[in-house]
Every structure is written in structure tokens, then in C-alpha cells.
């Protein structure tokens, strides 16, 4: 079964083709990072305008890469949500009408399910059930994954997502865009023990997160340090920023790791999967590997290129769903808000 996947939910145009016999046979990705850099964040209308220019050329290129024609496809999967409504509608308009005109099933894929299943693209892949930590710029979720489409949210963020906290903190430190990556790079050069930032929600039971207070703590610390009498910007700034970055990252990673530990205990599962943009974070990977040894569990991360948004995970999730259900819809859908838990019903 060969499925084309279309991802346009945010600032990446991803087009990929997954073959259930041969794996991923095409994987095209265009990132809009440079377009949004001057705004310090994703500008939704600019994102949509770019998606509509890139989608068709990337589909054509993907078919060339896979050496197939559109008529060889068995289904078209597109990200139907959650995400930016205007951006989502580009992928769903193209994807749904492509499927309709080819008389193929169209598969509405949940963006976070795509991320959650991305580690299954690897040869060494996790088996159900598992706990999944989904951490990206828009989400911080702990999910009980019993099987395809059977998801229970164990914990969610009450405010900022983990990736969002990275980006916002980087912005207030004046680190440029996309700040999260820059901040975690600087963190490798800093002293993570210099500042003790709060670990929100750690003293309470439960698996929810809250990261918005962290950036305030960073701001207060930063201002306090640069106002000290003996602070010399040319001498101290670089080290200060690096140390703040490292201490901030440590606070986030520590929180995520401890919550993962709790989730594993709560479910008694032996497998932990980490996905989403923040799963590329090196420190998080190191500390979760330590947790793996400590709890005698197995942990899985997606390949680095599948941590950020991509078409491969959408094609893959679409293919898995197509094996279970076939729906042919002529209604173009986009759901800017859509809970993973609502997916259950579709597979009953």
C-alpha cells in the first residue's frame, strides 16, 4: 500500500510517500524558518501563502524521487489538525481534492499522532503499549498509547509548551530565531548548577506541566545579575547567558524526566517513546537514557530529521490507518483544535 502524506500545519511544508512494503520512498521538506525569522515567531498568513506555492512542486518531486506516478498511490493522507487554520487548509484542500479526483481514500491525520508514531519509522521500533512524551513548540503531553488510535492523555501543559518556553526564553535573552535551538546550543557551554530555576508542578501529584513561570524566573535572574555593581557586560555577558541557558534547560529537562518517571510508574509500562521537536534536545536524550537504565525500561526517540514537523510521519500514520479503515470523503476538513483522545472513536 502506497500513501502520499501532506503536512502543512505550521511553518514546514512536508510531502512524503510511504510504502508499507518498502518503507519511506520519498521525503520532501521545505522549512520556512527564514521567512519568519524577522518576526521572531511564525506569522500565520505568511506561512499559508508559502505553503500554497510549495505543495505542488514538492508533490511532483516526491513522485520523481519515489519513481511512481500519482496513479500508483493507494491513499492520500493529510494533516487535518491541530494547527494554524489557514496553513492546514492548504494541505487539506490539495490533499482531499487530489484523493477525490484519483478516486482514492483520503485520510485525515492528527498532527500529534504523526509525531507520536514517528519513532515507529525506525527499524528498531517500540511496540505497544507505551508511554509517549510529546514535546514540541505547541504541545507538552504525556500520553498512554495502548495501540493505534487508542490514546489517553495522562498529562498536559497548563500554559506554555516546552518548546514554546525555550523559544520565549531565548527571545527575552535576545538570542534570535528560532531561539529554542540557539538556547540549547548555548546551554552546552554553560554551568547548569549556577542558577536554580523552579520546577513547576513537581510538588504536586499528577502529570501536568506548567512552564510559563520559568521565563519570568529567567527574566528576574537575568536583570538581577546585570544590575550587580561588579557586572561587566563585555567580560561577563557570554558566560551569564550560557549559564542561564544551561540552568533553564536543566529545569525543563529535569521536570520532563521526572514526569516521565511518574508516568512509567503509574502505567507500569516498560517502554517510553519521546517525540516532537524538543525530542531533538541532546540533554533530554542523555537524561532519559539514564532513566532507561534506572527504571530498566526501553526508550525510543525518532531520528533527528523526524523530530520536527515532516511529511514522513503523516504518510506513515496515514498508511497505518489505511490498513485499518478506508474512508472516502469529498469534504475538505481542517480542525485547528483537535484532541488526541478524540481519535479513539475512529478506530472502534
Amino acid at each position: 500500500m502506497i500513501v502520499l502524506g501532506i503536512e502543512t500545519s505550521c511553518d514546514e511544508t512536508g510531502i512524503a510517500i510511504y510504502d508499507t512494503d518498502n518503507g519511506l520512498i520519498a521525503d520532501q521538506l521545505y522549512s520556512q524558518i527564514e521567512l519568519h525569522a524577522q518576526y521572531g515567531g511564525v506569522f500565520p498568513e505568511i506561512a499559508s501563502r508559502d505553503h500554497i506555492k510549495k505543495t505542488v512542486p514538492l508533490i511532483k518531486q516526491a513522485c520523481i524521487d519515489a519513481n511512481i506516478s500519482l496513479n500508483d498511490l493507494d491513499g492520500i493522507a493529510y494533516t487535518a489538525g491541530p494547527g494554524l487554520i489557514g496553513a492546514l487548509l492548504v494541505g487539506s484542500s490539495v490533499g482531499c481534492s487530489l484523493a477525490w479526483a484519483l478516486d482514492l481514500p483520503s485520510i485525515e491525520v492528527h498532527h500529534m499522532e504523526g509525531h507520536l508514531l514517528a519513532p515507529l519509522l525506525d527499524e528498531d521500533k517500540p511496540e505497544f503499549p507505551f508511554v509517549c512524551l510529546l514535546v514540541s513548540g505547541g504541545h507538552s503531553l504525556l500520553v498512554d498509547v495502548k495501540g493505534l488510535g487508542d490514546y489517553t492523555i495522562l498529562g498536559d501543559t497548563l500554559d506554555d509548551a516546552a518548546g514554546e518556553a525555550f523559544d520565549k526564553t531565548a527571545k527575552l535573552l535576545g538570542l534570535g530565531y528560532p531561539g529554542g535551538k540557539i538556547l540549547s546550543d548555548l546551554a552546552t557551554k554553560g554551568d547548569k548548577n549556577r542558577f536554580k530555576f523552579p520546577r513547576p508542578m513537581m510538588n504536586r501529584p499528577g502529570l501536568d506541566f506548567s512552564f510559563s513561570g520559568l521565563k519570568t524566573a529567567v527574566r528576574v535572574t537575568y536583570l538581577k545579575e546585570i544590575e550587580k555593581d561588579n557586572y561587566d557586560e563585555s567580560r561577563d555577558k557570554e558566560k551569564l547567558i550560557n549559564d542561564i541557558a544551561a540552568s533553564f534547560q536543566e529545569a525543563i529537562v529535569d521536570t520532563l524526566v521526572k514526569k516521565c518517571q511518574r508516568a512509567i510508574k503509574q502505567t507500569s509500562y516498560k517502554t517510553l517513546v519521546i517525540a516532537g521537536g524538543v525530542s531533538a534536545n541532546t540533554e533530554l536524550r542523555i537524561q532519559l537514557k539514564e532513566l532507561e537504565t534506572k527504571l530498566r525500561i526501553k526508550s525510543y526517540f525518532p531520528a533527528l530529521k523526524y523530530c520536527t514537523d515532516n511529511g514522513a510521519m503523516i504518510a506513515f500514520a496515514g498508511a497505518l490507518r489505511l490498513l485499518k479503515e478506508k474512508s472516502q470523503s469529498n469534504k475538505i476538513k481542517a480542525y485547528p483544535r483537535w484532541s488526541l483522545e478524540d481519535l479513539e472513536e475512529t478506530l472502534v
Binding site: 500554497i52 505543495t55 505542488v56 508533490i59 511532483k60 500519482l70 487548509l89 492548504v90 487539506s92 484542500s93 490539495v94 490533499g95 482531499c96 481534492s97 487530489l98 484523493a99 477525490w100 479526483a101 484519483l102 475538505i332
Partner: peptide, 10 residues
Amino acid sequence: VGVVQGLALA
């Protein structure tokens, strides 16, 4: 435009 892209390609 998106719908026409899908239809024309297919």
C-alpha cells in the same frame, strides 16, 4: 487554488 492544484494534478 488548492483544490484546483489537487484536481489538475490528479
